[in-house]
Design a protein around this nucleic acid. Structure first.
Length: 1063
RNA sequence: GGGCCAAUAGCUCAGUCAGGUUGAGCGCUCGGCUGAUAACCGGGAGGUCCACGGUUCAAAUCCGUGUUGGCCCA
């Protein structure tokens, strides 16, 4: 028989099983076993290939792997193609860093083609490393054939979908205010902007009115946007004040207040317009000494007022066109700071929208790299944020600065290079998702989410607020946008004359150059050189590439090769399930829905399982800077792959974060160790009897009550586990299994079945026990296989091993014939009784080895009483009692009252708490005879308002259980003492046998001397029992005569000397 | 600044939807068992149920306002 390690050692089991899987082609065997089953179309959300696996991605892939394995075992042909997201700015930035680049100019000089090759190599080498990472946690996916967003087939899927979107009239080019990274010189999507707290200027600027006295006061943290100021916005409903403010000259240093301050002794006066609620704050910041409110106006009254551009003297051009330099109403105004908002439609998003509504020209004196253009006059060529200082200085010198300071606020940064973003209006390509918002919402309704709030309370909100999708990036490493426009077209009419190419064949057909559609690389710069000439017009491709989020948005069809291959698509699409963390609500969950809806108005997935993030033990995000990162490698090294997987999956998988904790991981390892022990416990006995657990047959042999019970529990657990899986409550399934193994199998069943396994002779009972434990183990292992694939495989190989792998087998299904809920109930009661009896024993200081004369179970519940009576023999055996009594009332007790608030509360209302206090602890006699009073008044108590607790008599100790009380009579008799001491002697002899390393069946010569004549006589009554249990075939009169071992023991305060000789 | 989620024993989590004297595992501690044995099993201690208000006879639970953490959005 093979050697089974005494202890569960994942570090030994897992590598061995991994090699076995490799040698036996186990993954292939598992997939082939289910090749003809109905399909389950799972789509892997592609991880981005710029990093390595961390605990969060480990959790993600483990969860996916468990689901795939489960679905396979429950009879599905599962699509298990992994994917990788390999394009995009993050990789470009990493490669730029490696090559020491600072800007796009460096890339152009290096050569786009060479740069793109570098990006490809970087992404590929990362992908290979990630393959290994994912395999290392036992993720069984089709690693030989992952989908890659950089492959021509994949890119074609994106082109094709985009062309569908264009055919539906949802592609347009337009000006939008976007977040621009000035370093990367490209627009960013909202979710590529990360917010960090930074210190920025906080300036209050006076805009002098052109047609009357006074100034409007605005506040901004971006002085560099003032050159583009086009209008000032007010809230029509809001109340504004005209404030006459006075400042007396004083020689303060730089305190933040500027402008208007007179010299010593002089006095300056300003007429300021601000929102009424803001007057005090603004005047204080401006360090005015005194003020008087001259007028109260509504915002509506201010509309139409004209003002002078505050930087007019410093700029070459500024917005002075028709309609500029005026006050307008806008709904983004709040009574915050000044209540008047500096608006620059060339920058801010809301400013832009309002400017367009107002029909104003859009002016933007800033280039894509963040430098002012010539239009900015004195500031031309300066980087905008650097120009802040000059602009502030000019405003001060010109007397337009009311106050300036700095403020810490959260500001957007480029997700890749951490450069502060700038809002700019540029021309971009959009998918007008807002045109199909209703369709998006409808399609969303077609999908089922776990947890449901993720859809209804989060995703829906996001869809409702979603802006049009800016899909263009002015970069290199991405899927080129397949739009060709006429060479001489005006930028404003690109989308009217565009050609959108959907497939490689179409490309080959239409371009002027000769290309092989099977060979062509769709990346830049190859496609940049291709032109199309139709009807005498030559078209050139626009230079942009797609936003990388568009790449993964097409995964549900790209992963099955559509449109290049159509068969799989027709059979499988849409996805049955996708599984990602909650950050993807705004990421992949969204982009897929958006793209599928825009392209063909259907939801691309039917079910969405949204899990959480792994945080540190404090619940804080793991990050390099905090230094609280735990890597999967570390967890595997310290605990193992199965423990890590089981740990991750034993926590809530639906929307909740996990606080990673080493102790918790160790705990899980301990539970798996118990499983390991239950597995190896029966093996030696089966081996001695040549019993093959693989051919276990429950009808061979005789099933005893505990066998029937554990088999019934097995059916219940199978039901519970499959119900949990059905709703992706995977942690409930895992915990139910662990509970079953530890509580039912190890703690109860194994303990109950030991005697039968020790029987030497063959018996029907023993065969029944073997068949039972073999069945329980087999089905438990299969249920646990998706969670802990290595250790279950290891166990399966020993117990059965007929199939190539346990993962090819069917998931166990409950068998009603073996299900006996009544029996489960009875045993549950019995276990409660047993536990209570143990508690009572412990209170009395009576160990289990000593019998007790009587156990009384008091219960008013007939079911409970029946259960105890039914299982009397088992109870007597397990609690080591001579007799058992079941009664509804133990007459020997003094009873004390316990108030039942469910009854007392409704009956007494406001007095209920006082009644509770009065009832607590009163005797039954007092309660039943009106002895309970509150404030001197007798309380009438109905039956049911009070239950009773009893105090046991001398020699009896009590312990409650759920449905009653167990009394254990520990009064000693000679008979009990005799057996107790005898068993104590036996146990000491056994320990000495073990110390001598005796064979289990070796005979001994035994001598026992007890330093108490009465006890010695009592023990002598059990001489035969002692001899039998310890295999003593001869007796020594004096233990001191023994030569092999002699030891003195203290048994219950009495000296016992034991001597042993081998025979 | 806004939306969503979470907060219960030293730790990990149930219990919250349907209000009635808070439960489990681990850890700690004490003990039991001694042919699973560096395993296994039991008892005990340990809790202003994040805080403060409100509804109710009664709130961990329902409502409101905050605090802390997470995700997303601005």
């Amino acid at each position: 028989m093979e050697q089974i390690d005494d202890q569960y050692a994942p570090a030994d089991v897992e590598p061995a099983i991994e090699s076995y899987w490799d040698d036996a082609d186990a993954y292939e065997a598992a997939t082939e076993a289910h090749a003809d089953d109905p399909p389950f179309f799972f789509v892997d959300g592609p991880p981005y290939t710029s990093g390595q696996m961390h605990l969060g991605t480990a959790w993600n892939k483990t969860l996916k792997d468990a689901i795939i394995r489960y679905k396979r075992m429950t009879g599905h042909r599962v699509t298990d193609r992994p994917g990788y997201d390999m394009h995009g700015l993050p990789i470009e930035v990493k490669v730029e860093e490696e090559l020491g680049f600072d800007s796009k100019r460096d890339i152009e000089e290096y050569g786009m083609e060479a740069f793109i090759e570098e990006c490809m190599e970087f992404a590929e080498s990362n992908r290979e490393a990630m393959d290994e990472d994912f395999k290392s946690i036992g993720a069984w996916m089709d690693w030989d054939d992952p989908y890659k967003t950089v492959s021509p087939e994949y890119m074609e899927s994106a082109w094709w979908a985009f062309s569908e979107v264009a055919d539906r009239g949802l592609v347009e080019r337009g000006k939008r205010s976007i977040s621009q990274c000035p370093r990367c010189e490209t627009g960013l999507a909202n979710n590529e902007v990360e917010y960090e707290d930074v210190e920025d200027p906080s300036v209050y600027v006076k805009f002098d009115l052109a047609d009357r006295e006074g100034s409007l006061v605005i506040w901004t943290t971006t002085p560099w946007t003032i050159p583009a100021n086009t209008f000032v916005a007010v809230d029509e409903e809001l109340t504004y004040n005209a404030v006459r403010a006075v400042k007396r000259g004083e020689s303060d240093g730089d305190g933040g207040a500027d402008g208007g301050a007179g010299e010593d002794g002089s006095e300056t006066e300003d007429l300021l317009y601000v929102a009424a609620d803001c007057v005090e704050d603004v005047l204080k910041r401006g360090r005015y000494d005194d003020y008087e409110i001259e007028a109260e106006l509504s915002g509506a009254e201010l509309v139409g007022w004209e003002y002078d551009h505050p930087l007019a003297d410093h700029l070459a051009e500024y917005p002075d066109f028709e309609g500029a330099g005026q006050v307008y109403a806008a709904d983004y105004v709040e009574a915050d700071r000044t209540g008047l908002v500096h608006s620059a439609p060339g920058h801010g998003e809301v400013d832009f929208e309002r400017g367009r509504e107002l029909g104003l020209e859009i002016a933007c004196p800033v280039a894509p790299n963040g430098e002012f253009t010539d239009a900015a006059g004195e500031y031309a060529g300066q980087f905008v944020r650097d120009a802040n200082d000059d602009i502030i200085a000019d405003l001060i010198d010109d007397g337009r600065m009311l106050a300036h300071d700095t403020v810490e606020h959260s500001y957007g940064h480029c997700w890749r290079c951490d450069t502060g973003i700038i809002q700019l209006v540029t021309d971009q390509w959009f998918i007008s998702i807002t045109d199909v918002k209703d369709d998006l919402l409808e399609n969303m309704e077609d999908s089922e989410w776990f947890p449901s709030w993720a859809r209804d309370q989060r995703f829906r909100d996001f869809i409702e607020d979603a802006p049009d999708w800016n899909v263009s990036r002015q970069r290199y490493w991405g899927i080129p946008i397949p739009i060709w426009v006429p060479e001489d077209a005006e930028p404003g009419s690109f989308d009217e004359e565009m050609i959108v190419i959907g497939t490689r064949d179409e490309l080959a057909d239409r371009v002027d150059q000769s290309i092989d559609p099977d060979e062509v690389d769709l990346h830049r710069p190859t496609v940049d050189d291709l032109t199309i000439t139709e009807d005498g017009t030559t078209y050139r491709r626009v230079e942009d590439v797609f936003d990388v989020w568009l790449d993964s948005s097409v995964a549900s069809w790209a992963t099955i090769g559509y449109p290049g291959e159509t068969e799989a698509f027709e059979e499988l699409w849409p996805a049955d399930l996708i599984v990602e963390a909650h950050d993807q609500t705004r990421g992949w969950f969204w982009s897929q829905l958006g793209m599928a809806t825009a392209a063909f108005d259907e939801a691309p997935y039917e079910q969405v399982l949204m899990h959480g993030f792994v945080n540190d033990s404090e619940g804080r995000k793991m990050s390099k800077s905090v230094g609280n990162i735990v890597t999967p490698e570390e967890a595997i090294e310290r605990a193992g792959r199965d423990p890590l997987r089981t740990y991750l999956l034993s926590h809530d998988q639906q929307g909740i974060d996990l606080a990673f904790e080493w102790d918790g991981l160790g705990e899980i390892q301990g539970k798996l160790n118990i499983l390991w022990n239950t597995f190896r416990f029966p093996l030696p006995y089966m081996d001695l009897d040549d019993y093959d657990p693989a051919s276990a047959d429950l009808s061979d042999g005789e099933l005893e009550l505990v066998d029937e019970w554990v088999l019934s529990r097995l059916q219940s657990v199978e039901r519970e586990v499959s119900d949990a899986w059905e709703e992706y409550r995977i942690s409930d399934a895992v915990n139910a299994l662990i509970e079953f193994v530890t509580q039912d199998v190890s703690r109860f069943y194994i303990k109950a079945v030991r005697d039968r396994m020790w029987e030497e002779a063959d018996s029907a009972s023993k065969r029944g026990a073997y068949a039972t434990i073999a069945t329980v183990l087999d089905e438990t292992i299969r249920m646990l296989a998706p969670i802990a694939p290595y250790v279950t495989e290891r166990m399966y190989r020993t117990l059965d091993g007929e199939a190539t792998t346990v993962h090819a087998l069917a998931y166990p299904e409950p068998d009603d014939d073996l299900h006996d809920p009544d029996l489960e109930h009875d045993v549950a009661v019995m276990r409660d009784v047993e536990e209570a009896a143990a508690t009572a024993r412990q209170q009395a200081g009576r160990k289990l080895r000593w019998p007790v004369s009587r156990v009384v179970v008091e219960t008013e519940d007939d079911d409970v009483a029946n259960a105890v009576e039914t299982l009397e023999d088992l109870i007597l055996d397990r609690v080591n009692a001579r007799s058992l009594v079941v009664t509804d009332r133990f007459e020997e007790l003094e009873e004390r009252a316990r108030p039942q608030m469910a009854e007392i509360g409704p009956a007494f209302g406001g007095q209920a708490q006082e009644v509770m206090t009065a009832v607590e602890g009163a005797s039954r006699e007092a309660v039943e005879n009106g002895g309970v009073t509150v404030d001197g008044e007798t309380i009438e108590l109905e039956p049911g308002m009070v239950e009773y607790e009893a105090t046991p008599p001398e020699g009896v100790s009590a312990a409650e259980f759920d449905d009653g009380t167990v009394y254990v009579d520990t009064t000693l008799t000679d008979d009990i003492e005799a057996e107790g001491y005898a068993r104590d002697v036996i146990r000491r002899v056994q320990e000495m046998r073990k110390d001598l390393d005796l064979e289990v069946d070796a005979s001994i010569r035994l001598g026992v001397a007890i330093d108490d004549d009465r006890i010695a006589d009592l023990v002598d009554e059990h001489r035969d029992l002692i001899a039998e249990e310890t295999r003593a075939t001869e007796w020594l009169d004096d233990p001191d005569a023994a030569t092999d071992a002699r030891e003195e023991w203290d048994v219950e305060g009495i000296d016992v000397t034991i001597g042993i000789d081998r025979i």
